[in-house]
Design a binder for these strands. Structure first.
Lengths: 258, 258
DNA sequence: TAAAAAAGTTTCGTGATATGATACCAATAT
DNA sequence: ATATTGGTATCATATCACGAAACTTTTTTA
């Protein structure tokens, strides 16, 4: 409890709503006991929830249960949230802190699409403003962002994506064997971030983190890209902590609990 | 509005919650105007919603927006609902009405798994109590239930599933060409039900409907199976209306609006 | 199967509590 | 610099939510 709730009935009715959501179909008395409320109070509030369409009474058992109105409401809310608006300020901070280009991608099928990009202020280093632009599609298997997301997906989906990808050697470092990829993903899952070690383009390294939502699903990822000259192993070590921090913060913003 | 809401403040606070869910970050006055509430009332209720964790105030703009608590709540509710319990009574009715075996399946990857089965009462016809049992996995491409679900999925997912399936000719009627399958699915989508025309096993026909949830996603399907001797084209015609009816009712039970 | 207990529903008098007018402060707009 | 708009705080008032009690229905137990 942060601050005191100024509306008693609201506190109570939401507690009831939550109780019903958690404990399937339940009865008036059960709720009353669990929440220490008088049964007539519980009953009145259930009537209120019913009149608003959030709860219904099971014809057979007489128990009370949620309708799908809550789900629909949360669905509407989710469809209105704008990952771009949420992520952009973080990306700017990351770009500033690290003085490197930062990308945001969204998974679409077995590819990722670049949906945002922030470059650090100051004189540009043209060698890195390479093949990346908003809207670009890239296969998942040969990008740090793609691998970051892959590492969060169930095996089954990985296989499905792999089948659809026809992995080819973009560079000598590209991973094209499923076995090696599974190894790699296990490592990524452990470390929490993914590394693209010139697997897509010689001379470019990226560090990426997946963004996890309220359901631990991963639909978005972001990365720091830089020419290998600035991406020594020590620098990767240092940048990875920034990535992990931002990953945690952004995931929290998408409702992730962990 | 069904019946009168016995709790004024509940009515108001939920209206505010809904308004905020729909209209992104909003201000006190805007809500007050939209819902014809005094701004001090709105403010107090927002404080209440904040104290309960459903709403937060944007640091920058001072506007109010939802947190993910609502999403998490709806997520908990969804994980608790039991498709089996919901669908079973409908299946029993269908089996009784049609005097045929009814199945319920859930999609898992590029297969469906049989999770429930109801046989009509009375003397059994052993010719149909064939290769179906709870837990059985079957590819989607050669089953009515599978095709019913496929028809509701985006093209992209269809391709992915197709790749993973290695379609083979189970019978002379099995569809193994992607082009033909896309034709077939278009037809299924139009009609609302799918037909397995001895595509999996000679002598057996099935009619299936997909179940659509609150998001128009399709994870479950059900079917009527019968030996071809009882599944003439006219009978299919007749049974399909039962399937469509049940499809509508079940989908509604899963929060589907249409 | 009767009686008792438990769960659900309705009513209503009471006072706690939600209400909204007013005022105040902060941030934009003019 | 001033006005306007939006957000926050206070408080007297009466409305509205409260819960005791009675009643009905269902389930359990004897």
């Amino acid at each position: 409890m942060e601050t005191k709730n100024p509306i008693q009935s609201a506190e109570r009715i939401f507690n009831i709503l939550e109780y019903v959501a958690h404990n399937g179909p339940v009865g008036v008395v059960e709720i009353g006991n669990a929440l220490e409320l008088h049964k007539s109070t519980v009953h009145r509030m259930l009537l209120s929830l019913i009149s608003m369409g959030y709860v219904e009474q099971n014809d057979k058992s007489g128990k009370y249960q949620l309708t799908f109105k809550l789900v629909q409401l949360s669905s509407i809310f989710l469809s209105n949230i704008d990952i771009y608006a949420i992520a952009h300020p973080y990306m700017e901070r990351l770009a500033k802190e690290c003085q490197e280009t930062v990308h945001l991608v969204e998974r679409t099928g077995s590819d990722v699409v670049y949906i945002d990009k922030v470059e650090p202020a100051g004189p540009r280093d043209s060698s890195i403003r390479m093949a990346s632009h908003i809207g670009l599609l890239r296969p998942m298997y040969c990008s740090a962002v793609g691998k970051a997301i892959l590492a969060e997906l169930p095996k089954e989906e990985l296989y499905s994506i792999w089948e659809n990808s026809n992995p080819e050697k973009k560079t000598e470092y590209t991973i094209t064997s499923l076995d090696k990829m599974e190894e790699e993903l296990k490592m990524i899952k452990m470390k929490g971030y993914a590394l693209d070690n010139e697997e897509n383009e010689i001379g470019v390294r990226c560090i990426a983190g997946a963004i996890l939502d309220y359901n631990n699903n991963s639909k978005y990822a972001f990365s720091i890209s830089a020419p290998i000259s600035r991406m020594t192993d020590e620098r990767v070590e240092e940048l990875s902590s920034h990535v992990l921090k931002m990953k945690g913060e952004l995931s929290k913003h998408l409702g992730n609990l962990s």
